[in-house]
């Protein structure tokens, strides 16, 4: 019972602040409401008994990506601008198309007969098993992801520091 209330709280937090991200006129407000979207998604992960993914979500998304995005907002404005504002373009056709996309997806999700296993118990923690999987079955993708992160950081530094003639 309490879990269903928690689900609706986190779902409302996620969807409501995602609406602010899409429709807010101030870029800073959008960046900060993205924080609440990520928090709500992390709460949903906890409800799905994915504790490690929830913590990784908070650390990587809020501690890393969101900070990067806020830096992006700060660095792409002139010091003389009082407030960073950004409008929307072609809102009505985009709204119609997004409505069609959401409606189709919800119809597909609710009408499909998903294979569901009843009564799977919540497990205590996923970190140990996840670590074992990453070091045995998925060790090659894990190493490739490490190399990818290194290359991405080097490439990002190279692109951002390139001098404009």
């Amino acid at each position: 019972m309490e879990i269903s209330i928690l689900f609706y709280v986190f779902a409302a937090l996620t969807v409501g602040s995602a609406f602010v991200v899409v429709f807010s006129r101030s870029v800073i407000y959008a960046a900060f409401s993205l924080l609440f979207t990520f928090m709500g998604v992390a709460g949903l992960y906890v409800l799905l008994s994915a504790d490690f993914i929830a913590v990784a979500q908070i650390m990587v998304y809020i501690g890393g990506i969101l900070i990067l995005l806020v830096f992006g907002v700060m660095l792409t404005r002139k010091a003389t601008d009082v407030e960073v504002r950004s409008g929307t373009v072609r809102t009505l056709p985009a709204l119609i198309i997004a409505g069609i996309v959401i409606g189709t997806l919800i119809h597909a999700f609710t009408s499909a007969q998903w294979l569901q296993v009843e009564g799977v118990p919540d497990i205590e923690g996923t970190t140990l098993e996840l670590g074992e999987l990453l070091m045995t079955t998925f060790v090659l993708p894990f190493e490739v992801a490490g190399i990818l992160l290194l290359v991405a950081v080097m490439g990002a530094a190279l692109i951002a520091r390139q001098e404009v003639k």
């Binding site: 899409v22 979207t37 985009a94 709204l95 997004a98 409505g99 996309v101 959401i102 997806l105």
Partner: peptide, 12 residues
């Protein structure tokens, strides 16, 4: 819903 809002943010 989150996917649709993301597509909307990308478009508008």
């Amino acid at each position: 819903i989150l996917f649709g809002l993301g597509v909307l943010a990308l478009t508008i």
